[in-house]
Design a binder for these strands. Structure first.
Lengths: 207, 207
DNA sequence: TAGATTGTTAATCGATTAACAATC
DNA sequence: TAGATTGTTAATCGATTAACAATC
């Protein structure tokens, strides 16, 4: 990356910007101002201006930001000019839902493989993906250059799977278990712990 | 609430503390120090001490924190001495996975109702819950005093469902769509946008 | 008493917001 | 030129970390 590091807080907002920009007709609107973006997304307008300056850095006074350019800049930050390969490890209820999830493709992700160690599941087809044996994980990750993996296995297997994925060169993990994954290498991990989300909501309601 | 407001950053960590405390045998260990907690959870020890002070506020020098007391304090913050009723609106792939999710009960949540507007789904039973018609939503929320709801409907219906839920007295919403929900009232919303999570991971990998 | 551990006060850091200058 | 809109610099705010005093 030639550019400076993007602050964590800005990363959090980038998908929101991209989603919104994508849904606007580029023929009708060639530029957009930070003011209108801020209003539509419920953010501060100075914040949006600062974000866009970090992301694209070529707004024009009086005119705003060129939408096409903005979208391309964001896409290049995400590296989503091409599709990114993702695998799902663990095809339980959550794993199945993910395998069927329609939102990935339009955001530039393709589920390339499903893995499970349950013999009854191996070979079954979900949404055009055949469930593979866990033994095939290593070879697959290396051959297909898998960068991102989703862990949706039972809690007790999560750390093992995580260790394996790192070994096989995966660079980012989306973890659906509430296991605190131990990762020494510089791999990126994000956790989605659904029950904890409810817990946090519960606290906020009473806070 | 008689106590002061709990800062947002501390709320984020409370489920982690509780999960960890619960898995320790209370007979073997009656107290725990901030140092050991910090190490186990990969947090700073001063941070843990500050958090626990806000949460419980009765650590004893040389001894640490009484585990039983700590657990009870956290539970009272979550209001999870009793079970909290949750409903799921939208029984697609994600909704079904949630209906089957085993992690809720042990964290004090019970899925009390599943709702969908698809006639083919209404009446079907998932994990002991019969899918109800969307028309029944209002009466159900009011009668059962539902505080928390999970939205897992298609994007285009999300705002409508949200408006209805607010009308029916729901206080917190877990939103699985990538719709930016518009809520004027002081209702708490948390978003789980799975595809955006992958997007953020993608950025971090290249950042 | 001495040492471990807590709680408090001050310093640092990053993110947000405000004020204002630059410019198309 | 005047006005809208950007970008920059400074102020504020909240969270984290560091230093240290209090105490069981």
């Amino acid at each position: 990356m030639s550019d400076k590091k993007i602050p964590k807080s800005v990363i959090e907002r980038i998908p929101t910007y991209l989603d919104f920009l994508k849904q606007i007709d580029l023929n009708d609107n060639q530029t957009i101002s930070s003011t209108s973006l801020a209003q539509a997304l419920g953010l501060g307008e100075v914040q949006v201006r600062k974000d866009l300056n970090i992301i694209a850095g070529n707004g024009k006074p009086k005119i705003g930001y060129n939408m096409k350019d903005l979208i391309n800049k964001i896409k290049s930050i995400i590296r989503s000019n091409e599709y990114t390969n993702v695998i799902v490890v663990g095809v339980g209820h959550i794993g199945q839902a993910l395998a069927n999830y329609q939102g990935f493709y339009e955001k530039g992700f393709i589920i390339k493989g499903l893995f499970d160690n349950n013999k009854d599941k191996i070979g079954k087809v979900i949404n055009n993906n055949t469930i593979k044996s866990y033994e095939e994980l290593g070879g697959f990750c290396i051959n297909e250059k898998v960068d991102l993996a989703i862990i949706a296995v039972p809690l007790e297997n999560a750390q093992n799977v995580c260790d394996d994925l790192i070994k096989y060169g995966v660079k980012g993990i989306l973890n659906f278990t509430n296991c605190i994954l131990n990762t020494e290498h510089d791999i990126k991990v994000r956790n989605i712990d659904i029950a904890s989300m409810l817990t946090k909501l519960s606290i906020e309601i009473n806070n």
